[in-house]
Design a protein around this nucleic acid. Structure first.
Lengths: 167, 167
DNA sequence: GGGTACATGTAATCAGTTACATGATTTA
DNA sequence: TAAATCATGTAACTGATTACATGTACCC
């Protein structure tokens, strides 16, 4: 049996929500939704479905005409894998893994670093807030909650770097 | 020229702080310091120094006796690479990439998830606070600031999951 | 003296990234 | 109609993880 990674579940989850999808549709769907939380390289949205189809979690159909795109849907096993994952609360812990913080750790000057990071995070926060205002109504509960987490952490980053910026 | 990854800079930074180090010493040093922010598999602390030595950023000496461990120190080029990196504020942005949040996004029940995550983060916060109390005095400014970021985000996670736990 | 934990390292695999490529639409 | 830009995909590479393996020291 293959090992299912977060990317596997992203693919399964997106296909579940869409009913069916080609890799390209996965790409656009990912960019518009989970992308902020966990982005995936587009090439992986071609290779990962192949893996999942091999493992019997996806059903693959080629279009008859034109580009003969691959269209994927969940098999019963695939739906089951997704459900099982959702029912098992993650025990994993996420490290911050922030490049800027890493530089700080090893002795970078806080001032310039803070200035740069502040800009990044302010822009990101603005994007999130716009997203919430404009697309909030169309979101699922889960998406909404996730976005709130994103906003909260952005606010925290801004507080943090702002504090370091006045040196 | 090789591409320098965050792991490369972790190795360079640790060796810079220690003066010289064997892979095993890197492993223990990493576990005790950067590990919380950005952990590295121990096997990588054997392969990455080889790469860096190939690229001329580290100098490698084999011990004469016994296990003939490899001992690394920075070359001038290595020190320069580290300094240059520290002087160039990171432009990168970190995604949350939290497995629990990913589950929430795709529709997992918030209740049980929150309960599990809450435990994780409370434990982690306690560790950080202990670390701050007990080792705080011996830390560099950068390490101290980094730890503060970690604590702030843990507090945010706890607030977030606690809010979802009362359903 | 046998187990168990720590120390130390290599090898194999694979996920994920980067680079390459080309057809189809839109726009200036 | 030339030039972008979007759409769509494959191939190659390599960083990172997992698995394997052996030596050494301590302790019951």
């Amino acid at each position: 049996m293959i090992r299912l990674t977060p990317v596997s579940y992203i693919v399964l989850g997106l296909i579940d929500a869409a009913g069916e999808a080609t890799p390209y549709q996965l790409k656009t769907a990912a960019a518009a939704s989970v992308g902020n939380l966990w982005s995936v390289q587009h090439a992986q949205l071609y290779s990962e479905p192949l893996r999942l189809a091999d493992a019997g979690l996806l059903d693959e159909q080629r279009e008859e005409t034109g580009r003969r795109r691959r269209v994927y849907r969940l098999t019963d096993a695939g739906r089951e894998a997704l459900t099982a994952w959702l029912a098992t609360p993650a025990d994993g812990f996420t490290e911050l893994r922030d490049p800027g913080l890493l530089q700080l750790f090893f002795g970078a000057e806080p001032g310039p670093l803070a200035a740069a990071q502040l800009g990044l995070h302010e822009r990101r926060l603005a994007e999130y807030e716009t997203l919430q205002r404009e697309a909030g109504a169309a979101m699922t509960e889960g998406q909404h909650l996730t976005l709130e987490a994103g906003i909260a952490h952005e606010r925290e980053w801004i507080r943090y770097w702002r504090n370091l910026a006045r040196d």
